[in-house]
Design a protein around this nucleic acid. Structure first.
Length: 596
RNA sequence: GGAGUGGUAGUUCAGUUGGUUAGAACGCUGGCCUGUCAAGCCAGAGGUCGCGGGUUCAAGUCCCGUCCGCUCCGCCA
């Protein structure tokens, strides 16, 4: 008999068999998904990355194959040769290959397998600990496997769109870079050759991609790994993959257009979903005012209302009056279907949702007949004031008003959370909807109360709006940047900006950030120097590819679209990294562990 | 750095007010079975109740500490 692999080559993947193959000889390889031994006939579901095909082993005339089939167990790797036959009316409608099966004539065990620590099957609910420790087993599961097939396809489409259709060059930037201040904490790499000195892994190739523009590359793209040593979330890993882009001689409109074509292409090719272009846009200030957040989920509306000025000097409700007196604000979320929220929600659940954001409480009022209110706020609001507020929020009988009074950051964060909570509770979120949004006109700076200084909201190479340059000295908080984020269903997919191309402007920004000339020179000297040698106006954007895959595959965690992810403590449970290294390595790197 | 939540058989979970020998399902092992497809039937094996300490006649259960997973706040230009 001919031997598998060297002579008998795979005729096709297991998931690809159909009635068109009936009567054809077949050679298949794969993992045993399940076996059903009826004493006589034995059925084996053979899995590979494309799906399953059922093997049928009859006791005769292929006695040997049947004897081998009798021994196989789940996850063994086997090879089979046989003939594709129709299952007639006895089909399995649950799987795509369910109308055919392979009548086995030759069967060989290529590798036996230990019993896996969890069943390799969709729909399991194994704890993350085991899944991550035995990641290669988890990845065999079709529902996870398909995410990486999709990921591969998305990456190919991405390269093709930018390099073939739009003239981008795919260029690479260093992984060992210079550590820079500002921004996220760096992952550091000690230098062996230079005692006491360190490289940093890139948080993003920001300066290098700008240097490509200065180098005349005109259009740059890279699918690159970035590293940030910050604490993790479901949508944040310490290393992640970014689609990094930069273009010369462009304004924000040009960048929007290229990106819109890109996401339209991806959503069309990957999901068959036709995006309506151009995408919606909203200024940062409006997003904050209306939704309390710079990445609103616009699959549903539920806008916030700012009641601050209407209430000022008129409201008797103590909490509001006190907050207003101290310079705080009062905003409200109006929910038309108020009866979906119980008294327990109002007393317990809703305050608990808002508490992590600093809200000391959530006041409420139910709207009854003739626009009257019940609840704790009601008696602190005159009939006249109430009517004005009703008109402002567009209330109706049966509605519920949730109020938060505090400093703006707390009001916005907690009401933004409550808005999402209510959207879910009221079933307002259409799972098939795609709400894309450009958030534009971000402020250039934000003030840090702890450090008592301004920080760049995007990054320090972002260009302010030309007409705001003169505000840099007088009123930095008012300066708007030529920066934009692309938001999808409440997820920040990416962000970018038009960059500064004049060294004097760049110097002014550093000054606004409190960097002395000396410091700027030390940290960014080469970059400031480069700016002086003829820098084209340029701008770009970076998209989080992992987050995009999360959206495209409807995954709830980044771990489902990153092949070998880290835990929340940034460890790899499979390979057990990070790990300690021996003294020789410490010595070579001229460093020593800190005594605790 | 902080908050919440979980950790009991290989896996998912149950385990009452602290009380006899810690259970179920799936998986696993063996047997039967020629049309299953998460096969079925019969039998069996399988436990450091995360770890350490404490209270108690008695701890999976109560208390303290600690480790790990997850979610969130801070953080993430």
């Amino acid at each position: 008999m001919a031997s598998f692999i060297t002579e008998l080559k795979r005729s096709k993947y297991n998931g690809e068999f159909s009635t068109a193959d009936v009567g054809q000889p077949a050679v298949v390889f794969g993992w045993v998904q399940s076996y059903r031994d009826h004493g006589g006939v034995i059925f084996i579901d053979l899995r590979d990355r494309t799906g399953f095909v059922q093997l049928r082993c009859e006791p005769s005339p292929h006695l040997h194959a049947h004897a081998v089939a009798d021994t196989v167990r789940n996850e063994w790797v086997i090879a089979a040769r046989g003939t594709v036959i129709s299952r007639g009316t006895n089909i399995n409608p649950k799987i795509p290959t369910g109308e055919v099966e392979i009548a086995v004539e030759q069967l060989q065990v290529l590798t036996e397998a230990q019993t896996p620590p969890f069943e390799v099957r969709d729909g399991i609910d194994t704890n993350e600990n085991s899944r991550l420790t035995y990641r290669y087993l988890d990845l065999r599961r079709p529902e996870l496997n398909r995410n990486f097939v999709a990921r591969s396809r998305a990456m190919q489409l991405t390269r093709a769109y930018f390099t073939e259709k739009h003239g981008f060059l795919e260029l690479e930037t260093p992984i060992l870079m210079k550590s820079t201040p500002e921004g996220a904490r760096d992952y550091l790499v000690p230098s062996r050759v230079h005692p006491g000195q360190f490289y940093a892994l890139p948080q993003s190739p920001q300066q290098f991609k700008q240097l490509f523009m200065m180098s005349g590359m005109d259009r740059y793209m890279q699918i690159c790994r970035c590293f940030r040593d910050e604490d993790l979330r479901a949508d944040r890993q310490p290393e992640f993959t970014q689609l990094d882009l930069e273009m010369s001689f462009v304004c924000p409109e040009d960048i929007y257009q290229i990106l819109e074509g890109y996401v339209a292409e991806i959503w069309s090719q990957m999901l068959g979903y036709q995006l309506q272009l151009p995408l919606r846009r909203m200024a940062y200030a409006q997003a904050m005012d209306k939704y309390g957040c710079d990445k609103p989920d616009l699959r549903f509306d539920l806008p916030l209302s700012n009641l601050t000025e209407t209430l000022r000097d008129r409201v008797e409700f103590r909490v509001f009056a006190d907050v207003l007196a101290k310079g705080g604000i009062v905003k409200a979320l109006y929910l038309p279907q108020g009866d979906a929220f119980t008294r327990k929600d109002l007393d317990t659940t809703i305050p608990q949702e808002a508490a992590p954001f600093g809200a000391k409480g959530v006041a409420w009022a139910r709207v009854t007949a003739q626009g009257e209110w019940t609840g704790p706020v009601a008696k602190g609001v005159s009939a006249e004031l109430r009517n004005e507020l009703n008109a402002l929020m567009g209330t109706a009988e049966g509605g519920l008003i949730l109020f938060v009074a505090d400093k703006p950051a707390v009001v916005h964060a907690s009401l933004a959370r409550l808005r999402l909570f209510a959207g879910e509770r009221l079933n307002l979120i259409d799972k098939n909807a795609w709400a894309f949004l450009w958030v534009t006109d971000f402020p250039m700076f934000e003030f840090d109360e702890t450090d008592q200084r301004w920080y760049a909201m995007h990054h320090p190479f972002t260009s302010p709006r030309a007409d705001h340059l003169e505000l840099l000295d007088s009123n930095p908080g008012q300066v708007l940047a030529q920066a934009y984020d692309l938001v999808v269903n409440g997820t920040e997919l990416g962000g970018g900006s038009v960059r500064i191309h004049a060294s004097d402007v760049q110097a002014k920004i550093f000054a606004s950030l409190g960097l002395s000339d000396q410091e700027a020179k030390e940290k960014f000297g080469f970059f400031l120097e480069a700016l002086k040698f003829g820098t084209p106006p340029h701008g770009g954007i970076a998209l989080g590819m992992d987050r995009m895959m999360m959206l495209l595959t409807q995954s709830s965690s980044l771990r489902d679209v990153i092949a070998f992810p880290k835990t929340q403590k940034a460890t790899c449970l499979m390979s057990d990294s990070p790990n300690s290294v021996d003294d020789k390595q410490w010595a070579e790197l001229h460093i020593s562990p800190r005594r605790v």
